[in-house]
């Protein structure tokens, strides 16, 4: 789950990763005097950043897995009373199961709608209206300009006119498609550009296949990586989304996590830790998988 606050920066990475295959950076041709100084500074930066990025996670792990109050924590108690009891207790909560179920349903729904809407659109742009490309790209970054908190304000405005729709929990799905749009479209678009769609389509059509067969047998197998990337990323956004769900009072997993932490500190913290571990693993796998292929694909929403 990615607990993305908002997706403002997402396309920064589209080019951050795009040319990582290119020239290696310049190594400073070192003047001998500056040499030692020049080495100490980067090492210090690395160490300090390393600490800054690992300490919060360690603190979180200790808080959620060790049953020793902070006052009693010392060298003698450092390795005592570690257990998963907080997390297992959280698993037993009805709210947790409901939240997990709702979030999973939303994730699946969002992935399906995203692919159903964007795959044909991206292909159509590529094959028939390449002129529309710049405009479509502009539209796909609009969700940065209208961040979740502003979008949900808009949803509140239209709510009186569409209560029948917005009262359903599943009404979150199209809005989540919008939130994920900037990078799902990019991921698909990059995949499409990496293969020769036109030849594939012509060949398949020339052999008498209809559009459905062409999609199913020729295009989708070739776009597998792109499809999986965008599906993963969509899922991480949905499973971490808090703003819209909280304002609209939908009981999703992050919403439960926040509420549970205020009454069961340790369990709530444990769930959050699990969530971070899950996200990191998922995104790391995705990074490695897409890197190996040497594809210049944006694997991150940033």
């Amino acid at each position: 789950m990615a607990f993305v606050e908002n997706s403002v920066g997402a396309y920064a990475t589209m080019y951050a990763f795009a040319d990582s295959e290119g020239d290696r950076p310049t190594t400073p041709t070192p003047a001998s005097r500056a040499k030692r100084f020049g080495r100490i500074v980067p090492v210090t930066i690395m160490v300090l950043c390393g600490l800054f990025f690992t300490l919060p996670l360690l603190a979180m792990a200790r808080f959620s897995l060790q049953n020793v109050p902070m006052i009693h924590l010392g060298w003698s108690t450092l390795f005592k009373k570690w257990s998963f009891s907080g997390i297992t207790r959280a698993f037993g909560e009805q709210g947790f199961r409901d939240g997990l179920k709702l979030s999973s349903v939303l994730a699946v729904g969002t992935v399906v709608l995203t692919l159903g809407l964007l795959l044909p659109t991206a292909l159509w742009v590529h094959l028939r209206v390449p002129k529309a490309r710049a405009f479509i790209e502009f539209l796909t970054v609009l969700p940065y300009v209208i961040p979740p908190i502003a979008l949900v304000a808009g949803i509140r405005v239209i709510k009186p006119h569409a209560r029948w729709f917005l009262n359903s929990d599943l009404s979150l799905i199209p809005f989540y498609v919008v939130l994920a749009l900037p990078f799902t479209f990019r991921a698909l678009d990059a995949g499409i550009r990496a293969i020769d769609v036109k030849t594939l389509v012509d060949a398949s059509r020339g052999l008498g296949a209809g559009w459905v067969t062409t999609m199913r047998r020729a295009l989708i197998p070739n776009l597998r990586t792109a499809i999986i990337s965008s599906a993963f990323l969509t899922a991480t956004v949905v499973l971490g989304e808090f703003t819209i769900a909280q304002v609209l009072l939908k009981r999703t997993l992050p919403q439960f996590m926040a509420e549970y932490q205020s009454r069961e500190g340790q369990g709530g913290m444990g769930l959050a830790l699990l969530a971070i571990v899950a996200t990191t693993t998922l995104l790391a796998i995705l990074t490695l998988a897409t890197r190996k292929r040497g594809q210049a694909q944006p694997i991150s929403r940033f």
Binding site: A2, F3, G9, L55, G240, M257, M269, A272, T279, L283
Partner: peptide, 20 residues
Amino acid sequence: FSGVAANLGGIPLAFAFIAL
């Protein structure tokens, strides 16, 4: 790591800093 951490945020991150 940056690709992953830039995506963290929200509830779990806040909890991590409360723990820290």
